[in-house]
Write a protein that binds this DNA or RNA. Sequence first.
DNA 1: GGTCTGAGTTGGAATTTCCAACTTAAGGCG
DNA 2: CGCCTTAAGTTGGAAATTCCAACTCAGACC
Lengths: 155, 155
Amino acid sequence: MPFKSLVEEPRCQVVRTLDVIGEKWSLLIVRNALRGQTRFSQFRDQLGIPSDILTARLATLVSAGILEKRAYREAGSRERSSYHLTEAGQGLNLVIAAIIQWGNEFNPSPFGLASVIVDARNDDPLELEFVGASRSGVPAEDVKFLPGPASVVQW
Amino acid sequence: MPFKSLVEEPRCQVVRTLDVIGEKWSLLIVRNALRGQTRFSQFRDQLGIPSDILTARLATLVSAGILEKRAYREAGSRERSSYHLTEAGQGLNLVIAAIIQWGNEFNPSPFGLASVIVDARNDDPLELEFVGASRSGVPAEDVKFLPGPASVVQW
DNA sequence: GGTCTGAGTTGGAATTTCCAACTTAAGGCG
DNA sequence: CGCCTTAAGTTGGAAATTCCAACTCAGACC
């Protein structure tokens, strides 16, 4: 686990989530899974991740309910394992999109955009936005974080 | 740097961004800064981060343009340093909100919500949403990642 | 001169990651 | 059968990162 928690179960949602996806390589494995990759050798070769670390990360992602391990068999080969995003894993496209969007705005690559996010139904480009009850976009400077009901001393 | 890049400058925006905020503690320092914390001792005491690591992280966040180092002086004390979010640092509320929102949905805390995100103008609760040209929310399953103009072999 | 305080530094132990080489379990072929 | 191939791991040891506790440093104040 990336963060030792003083209590058994951290209340802060940022810590809770980073405990699951905050280790090195975890989020990149999910990103590649979002691109449709499912196999050990794909992750290892495309990311350049050491295979022992990949083994460990796949195990923690599976036990966190982000990936699902399945058996597959190609014609003339023995049964092997593949890894597929669960609904929770799919949901991480929110986090990955936020990272891409922040990077494009504040740390753009001199090579241009490496990936774009679109609506699968019509290929419209998509953006992440804060929306409230009014359904209109909220500018970044008006977004405020407040302690919620579960916050005691800390958030 | 958390990820050794094969080329000098990674094209993938996820890797580029994780190079800046992907090390342990980095994002939690930014989160606490979003809560208004500015001082070394606040970060150290609230997060429980080792002080040598905090020194290193503050330096990389400053050189990445996420924090700005300023001098401050309290009555009857000597001048000391404090750390303030830049516009880019403020912009990371996008990433942190995405993490909180994913956690609330897929890995909720048994204690309830530790923090809520609201519109500072009217305290309306806010949500992150994918929006397209139509300005209407796009369901998660229709969000698709495509290679952009700068992608060559890889994204 | 001695003490206090916030912001660090320092040395060494513990943990995590990296790397290259090796293993394992079928399947196919002769 | 024995040998080769392949995806998916394991293993042992080196390198890098993180952790911890103790220490330093610079001014303010007594």
